[in-house]
Design a protein around this nucleic acid. Structure first.
Lengths: 136, 136
DNA sequence: CCTTGACCTTCCCATGATGGGAAGCCCCAT
DNA sequence: ATGGGGCTTCCCATCATGGGAAGGTCAAGG
């Protein structure tokens, strides 16, 4: 099949498929005489694997490692689990960070009248002195 | 003061100060005869405002709007609150998304032995068919 | 057989925010 | 006057993705 069909079937855009090939994340497929890339079902399978890893927030480099582990029949499941759990901690840390920002802002907004008056604790906070340390 | 001191005092790197100036987020400061940028206390104040907005996850474009609102004494606090709450929802949505990924992965990892054996439900899930729809 | 349109190819550019580093000038203290 | 640190501009890299141009290809229908 051509790249368009592989894209549709895998959920990875043709643009990205070419890119993944260029960085060596996936193997270069065979070509027709006219240089068209030709994919097999197994390639689509790999692309879906990549898609799933990306959807779960793994970087392309991490995805590269995951593919290697996937291909390596002799790897221990502990290796995979270790990588996965490290990523879980990353994700949770980032989520917590975003949540903290949201909470701070929500708190500031709660004290903002939100009416026609100009006074606003949100901007007042932003404009307050002290970068991080206390004491200007 | 020179850009280095403004950077230290505001918590914004000299590199970023120049960048913010180049995109018109902040005003171009006066220059010495030797083209050195000269900042006043008020400029540091603005830079700290930007820093705070960035720390709370606002994009530079949103920060631009916030500065405009900050400078506009006649704006209604409702305008600020609206922008802030929209951002809070953004942050919370992103946090929830990351949390969902983490939960999914944590769940998969929970079923992974994590020992010397090669079988791993994590990779098995990644390699499973079906992109998003059910049914291959 | 030729046209049309959908598909493919490569190549370059843009995003958003930031950092790194080079080449060259400037300023102050010793 | 010399040295070192700070300043200037300019270009490049990151990370993952999309947009689009210019040109070749293939299949279907007239």
């Amino acid at each position: 099949m051509n790249i368009g069909e592989a894209a549709t079937r895998s959920g990875v855009s043709a643009k990205m498929i070419r890119y993944y090939e260029s960085i060596g994340l996936i193997d270069a497929p065979a070509r027709t005489a006219a240089q068209y890339r030709v994919y097999a079902d197994d390639d689509v399978h790999t692309l879906r694997f990549v898609r799933r890893a990306r959807d779960l927030g793994f970087s392309l480099e991490e995805t590269r490692e995951l593919i290697a582990l996937w291909r390596d029949r002799s790897r221990a499941s502990a290796d995979v689990k270790k990588l996965a759990m490290a990523h879980v901690r990353d994700l949770e840390a980032k989520a917590a960070e975003l949540k903290a920002m949201a909470d701070t802002l929500r708190h500031l907004a709660a004290h903002c009248h939100g009416d026609h008056r100009p006074d606003c604790p949100i901007l007042a906070d932003f404009a307050a002195q002290a970068p991080t340390q206390g004491k200007a």
